[in-house]
């Protein structure tokens, strides 16, 4: 039905039905010619592969029934063997998968994990070797071995001066009753590792008395209390920027770091400081 709304549509249909485009250009026919030359031979309909079987029926070879029975039994046996073999392999793989029951188990290392070994010197000169695990520091063993005393070539009674360079006489080092060589004693190794590389002649700061071997040739008895130097009449704390960290400071720092690293257990916020937070109503 023609309505005013689609009058223009009828007009369009009639106009386009009578419409003729301009004749093809040479380029248009050139494109057509390329197509014809590319496909000169007419395309024959492609036959499906199954069409070669048209008119034929697929028949199984005519074998006597005992042969079929044996063949079926063989196939079943092979399938059963393959199935059981696969199931056994899967069960073995499942047994090797580690079980992680919870997130806490996954994050917490085993209790016997050795994290570090610490050597500390007690006030009475005892060298204590501590094996620190992430769970808790385990005091493995304490060797009642005194650190070797380091003697200097200075005469007795004369107080050593920090600025006096005196060579360390290692031949006079005495090992304890233990068979550990003095050069491999932890305290010695630690003192050698932490010794300043600067020459004593250029070191102008005041040295802390318990700094081992920072001034070569000086002798300190670790069993005595080193906080008071009688020749100076008191303990003067050196400037931080001029003194290297002592062994004790290093040990304290490491122990502090280890103690901080133990705080791996994530506690809920409401238990912070052992208290529930104050109740604040939401607006």
């Amino acid at each position: 039905m023609s309505t005013p709304d689609n009058n223009w549509e009828d007009h369009w249909r009639e106009t386009l039905a009578d419409h003729k485009a301009s004749p093809p250009s040479t380029m248009d026919w050139g494109g057509m010619e390329e197509l014809l030359e590319a496909k000169v031979a007419p395309l024959s309909p492609i036959k499906a592969p199954i069409s070669s079987l048209e008119g034929k029926t697929l028949k199984l070879p005519g074998l006597p029934w005992p042969v079929w029975a044996i063949a079926i039994a063989l196939v079943l046996a092979l399938g059963y063997w393959l199935g059981s073999h696969t199931a056994l392999g899967v069960s073995q793989e499942m047994n090797t998968i580690p079980k992680k029951t919870s997130l806490a188990d996954a994050l917490t290392p085993p209790a016997d994990t050795i994290f570090d070994t610490l050597f500390s010197v007690g006030a009475n000169g005892e060298l204590t070797e501590e094996i620190i695990s992430i769970e808790r520091a385990i005091v493995n063993r304490t060797t009642a071995q005194k650190s070797p005393e380091i003697n200097t070539s200075l005469p007795a009674g004369k107080s050593p001066s920090p600025s006096t360079p005196v060579n360390l006489n290692r031949e006079k080092l005495k090992a304890g009753s233990n068979d550990i060589a003095p050069s491999t004693t932890p305290a010695v190794l630690l003192s050698e590792a932490k010794a300043p590389t600067t020459s004593p002649e250029f070191f102008t700061g005041i040295r802390r008395p318990d700094t081992p071997s920072s001034a070569p040739g000086l002798s300190y008895d670790l069993s005595s209390k080193p906080t008071v130097r009688p020749n100076r009449g008191g303990y003067v704390r050196p400037l931080k920027t001029l003194s290297p960290p002592t062994d004790r400071e290093l040990l304290e720092q490491r122990i502090k770091a280890l103690s901080l690293s133990e705080k791996l257990v994530i506690t809920p916020l409401r238990y912070k400081n052992g208290h529930f937070p104050a109740y604040r109503p939401r607006n």
Partner: peptide, 11 residues
């Protein structure tokens, strides 16, 4: 054939 039918088929 192409040139004859082109104007009617192109639209």
């Amino acid at each position: 054939f192409y040139r004859l039918h082109f104007p009617r088929l192109l639209p």
